[in-house]
Amino acid sequence: MPATYYPAIIDRSASGLGVTFPDFPGCVANGATVNEAALNAEGALALHVAAMVKDKDNLPAPSALDDIEAVDGADDVAYLLIRVDAPLKVERVLVSLDGNLLRAIDAVAPNRSAWIADAARAALARQGYGTFLGPSEKGAFGGHPMAQALEEVERGIAEVVALAMGNKQQKDIIA
């Protein structure tokens, strides 16, 4: 996925630190510290972009950070660029899989390609790749709101591997 960087503004308010995105009105994040606000901004923008892609909305071109103007009365703390991995067009590929693994996937997935893509995303997230899915002290998915869904996909992968290998103990391969 190609990386695109969108500007974000972290400002201080009575309730803490807030983050807004000039290119995405309505997309906001917050945090108790600048670091926390920046990390939460990454997750919020990724979820916002994912929803836009799902709804087939066009993503705006990123504004230049130098063009962002201060808002009167705002207590701006930082201007930063937030990376988003914008999805590309789906491509058809030929992959080879063990027959038992393929049958196990088909037994649990109504759409084989979507299931394999979700499994690949979860595996990449576990390895720290992604815009907001890197490992942290809160767990493999950093305590992000998508964590539960991704961890469920990961458990599903482990179960399919176990079924394909004929051994329930193999669940620990992925987990």
Rank of each mutant, 00 (worst) to 15 (best):
L80N: 00
A117S: 11
L88F: 10
A119T: 14
N100P: 00
D98M: 03
V153N: 11
A123T: 11
A104I: 07
A117I: 13
V90C: 03
D106A: 06
G99K: 09
L101H: 02
L88R: 11
Y129G: 02
T131L: 12
L97F: 10
D98I: 03
S113W: 06
R103A: 08
K89M: 08
A117K: 13
V90T: 06
V108C: 09
R83V: 15
F141H: 07
V108S: 10
N100V: 02
Q148A: 14
L150R: 03
V93I: 05
L133G: 13
G143N: 00
K138H: 12
G139T: 02
Q148E: 14
A125N: 01
V93A: 04
G139M: 04
E151V: 05
I105W: 01
R121M: 15
A117R: 15
A140D: 13
F141L: 09
A125I: 00
A107E: 10
Q127T: 04
R121A: 14
V84A: 11
R92C: 07
F132C: 15
D85M: 13
G130A: 04
P135V: 10
L124V: 03
L80G: 01
K89L: 09
G99S: 14
K138I: 08
S96W: 04
L88E: 13
Q127K: 09
R92V: 12
R126T: 06
D85K: 09
P135I: 09
P87H: 08
G143P: 00
I105E: 00
E137V: 06
A120R: 14
D106R: 07
A104C: 08
D106P: 00
Q148S: 12
I105Y: 01
L97E: 05
V93W: 05
A114S: 10
K89V: 11
I82A: 06
K138D: 14
W115C: 15
E151S: 15
G99A: 14
S136D: 09
R112F: 12
R121Q: 11
L101Q: 00
E152Y: 11
T131N: 15
E137C: 02
L97S: 04
R121H: 13
L81A: 05
R103Y: 02
V153W: 06
A117P: 04
A119S: 12
S96M: 09
R103I: 05
A109D: 00
D106N: 09
A149V: 11
F141K: 04
P135K: 09
A117L: 10
N100L: 13
H144W: 11
V77R: 03
V153D: 14
L80P: 00
E152L: 12
V153K: 13
G99W: 06
A122Q: 02
S136G: 13
E152W: 10
W115D: 13
D98H: 08
N111L: 01
D98V: 05
D106W: 03
L97T: 07
A147P: 01
N100R: 07
A140W: 11
A140F: 03
E151G: 12
F132A: 15
F141G: 04
V90W: 06
K138P: 01
L94R: 05
S113E: 10
V108E: 10
E151W: 08
D85C: 13
Q148Y: 11
